[in-house]
Design a protein around this nucleic acid. Structure first.
Lengths: 138, 138
DNA sequence: TTGATATTACGAAAACATTCGTACATTTGT
DNA sequence: ACAAATGTACGAATGTTTTCGTAATATCAA
């Protein structure tokens, strides 16, 4: 029975997680440099945030050396899932299809990507029809 | 030249917007009753939030009668777009396809919906190939 | 060695968001 | 008429997140 609360990361925490997902293990300095590209904050602000995230169990760190190395403890996929789920239940009221069309309508997808999605949909359909037959009682 | 800041609605503000998008014009009481179904808050809390949203320009209201009637000033579609864009740029690093597959993978879509999405993709493809020919120089 | 620089720890301020109590006005039902 | 119910306004308490200053160390370069 695991208890510790998985409250979703805050906005700033997300920014840090994204750097760590992309770069892997990083020092505060490294994360901070990257954040500076898109926002404007002091070094100790980033430091403090990462310390808090460590306290919360969102990051682990290696502090054998003076300069600590941080790594994400949460998987990108699980946060993606969490965020997408929330969005479908809230803004898109239970219809993943609406979200999908919105995403495709407003953001460019290559022919390649479109093919990929179609294949995916084909698989879903054949899966669905098999299950439809197998589970026809319930 | 329009200036007024469009800071994205807070969590609670989103809940209220969703009620208003669904129901159209509402009194505070009506919104509040609906919120009570899923959360637990006092009436004056809802009232205050809606007043703040009005100050921010998120809601407009008709206060000719004693009981004010509120309506959303922001379009659901524009918030959807804003949120989806942010998500694609952040969590899904520029790939709408990843978001789409995530959404379809974790949430049930009916055969009907799958068909709908496929048609949509077909249209996109033919559009893309036409543009490909027309804009072949650049 | 010594001074400049980099790093962590940490408290507290500032900014933002949420919640609620209270006062006061209007409407309603008897 | 008047008590109860319903409504708005608004200040203030509470809670959360973000920001930063300062102190204490450690490292580095001359």
């Amino acid at each position: 029975m695991k208890s510790l609360k998985l409250s979703k990361p805050t906005e700033s925490e997300m920014e840090i997680l994204q750097v760590l997902w992309e770069k892997g293990a990083c020092t505060v300095r490294e994360v901070h440099e990257i954040l500076l590209e898109t926002k404007d904050a002091g070094y100790t602000t980033t430091l403090k945030l990462m310390q808090i995230m460590h306290d919360k169990g969102l990051l682990k760190r290696n502090d054998e050396a003076r300069t600590h190395i941080y790594t994400s403890m949460v998987k990108k996929e699980s946060i993606q899932k969490q965020v997408v789920t929330k969005m479908i239940n809230g803004l898109f009221k239970g219809s993943p299809a609406k979200l999908v069309m919105h995403a495709l309508g407003n953001h460019h997808a290559s022919q390649e990507e479109i093919r990929e999605i179609k294949n995916y949909l084909d698989e879903m359909e054949s899966q669905a029809s098999i299950e439809g037959k197998v589970n026809s009682k319930k």
